[in-house]
Design a binder for these strands. Structure first.
Lengths: 235, 235
DNA sequence: CGGCAAGTTGAACCGCCTCAATGACGGTGG
DNA sequence: CCACCGTCATTGAGGCGGTTCAACTTGCCG
């Protein structure tokens, strides 16, 4: 995945591989990291879906973003003293773990790897920023449309999206926690999308009936996801 | 500012200094970067306040975060192909500019500098994530209280905050665009904060009357800002 | 067949928005 | 020195989007 940013040299690939510990299979609904924990490792999600979220004292949950295969998990608080969020799997998943200390050591030898991670983090933040706009300044239907389009595009980049839809294990409750809404309202918004002939989410699968219409509604600009790093500008 | 993360060596400081171009004085309400622009430089804000935001087609504005002295401007889209946001100054300001190309070259020689930037970016993202929670899952008064506390704490870290309040040039409109509300509603919420004896924002200055009460209301946990990098864990 | 998680629908309520008007302040020019 | 102006703050009345509470359905799995 990082390879989308720069073309790695041999030694860089080797260094990267040394970092990755054996893969681990994980059940659905398992906590991978907890908010507030001190020592933090970072994962790469190889298969399955996960969500990164924060909890409030009264039990409300805000999902920061959804992770699909190829994404980092916990990259954000990797260098911070305490994790600022929790991560939970949404489906069965396959992950591999990085150790903080070893990554830091490797970074000193392979500076270009650091730049690649910097790029990945920037992209992740661009996604979070879009969610902020979704919640803050878009109506429920616009924001939800945007979210569904974004996920579709990200899936396509890693080869998991087909035209016209994708397998989507997100429950209405998960979507609600991501959008700052109630599951009940998400249900009604999904119905609106269906009745308008734009998209329908039924039985773990999203079908897009009118891509152009959805994009127009959501004001979806692909630029923040489409980049493949600065490969286009070789050093 | 980056020095809060690691203790730099001599050569690293020198390399850092070579990167920084002459300081530039900028008027209030000047655009520093535009969403969608291709070539991007990155700034450090030395004096004054700025805001980073996105615009929607219908003219609505979402402020992503506020920048105070010591913050990077545009760090997030530094490595992305197109800027995902705009930056505008809110007051008169003093900035110095980095050039993308030269930073990338320097990173190869000084890998620890890369780690420090990675840390700064992580911290910035943690702030954005808090805003997401403010807007998504907190009520208007809780979220606003949280935002005001966060700014106060950040100011204190750079030596600009006094106990009991701080100079705050944010208009109610700016606060509204940050919180996903209308200026009118921000006004009413500020009144509530005043009437509850928690804090009052009048004439470019925020006075905090009951810090503990505010923190309780906002569920403010300082951890996401308090860290000073991994200095505590020398390599 | 029983049980649980997720989805669906209705009715009443409230937080925040919209539209509209007024007030307070600092700057500018006559 | 005052009249004028633009920007920001303040307040009211009415409406909409989204919530809350509650009930019922559907689908899956043992």
């Amino acid at each position: 995945q990082l390879g989308r940013f720069i073309n790695f040299r041999e030694d860089e690939l080797k260094g990267l591989q040394r970092l990755v510990e054996p893969r681990r299979k994980v059940e659905a609904h398992t906590q991978l990291t907890f908010e507030g924990q001190g020592r933090q490792d970072c994962y790469v999600l190889l298969e399955g879906w996960a969500a990164c979220y924060k909890l409030l004292p009264d039990g409300k949950r805000q999902i920061i973003n959804f992770s699909i295969p190829g994404d980092f998990l916990g990259l954000r608080s990797f260098l911070l003293r305490t994790a600022d969020h929790s991560v939970v799997t949404l489906t069965q998943a396959l992950v591999s773990q990085f150790e903080q200390q070893r990554v830091l050591e490797t970074l000193e030898d392979l500076p270009r790897l650091g730049a690649a991670i910097l790029w990945a983090l920037s992209r992740e933040e661009a996604i979070v920023v879009q969610h902020l706009v979704n919640i803050g300044r878009r109506t429920a239907i616009e924001g939800l449309a945007h979210l569904l389009l974004e996920i579709g595009q990200r899936l396509r980049v890693v080869g998991l999206g087909e035209d016209g839809g994708y397998a989507c294990p997100l429950t209405q409750e998960a979507l609600a926690d991501a959008m700052g809404l109630t599951p009940i309202h998400v249900n009604r918004i999904l119905r609106q999308l269906r009745e308008r002939g734009l998209a329908s989410l039924t039985g773990r699968r999203l079908v897009i009936h009118d891509l152009a219409g959805l994009r127009e509604l959501a004001d979806f600009n692909i630029a923040y996801l489409d980049h493949d790093g600065i490969k286009h500008k070789p050093e």
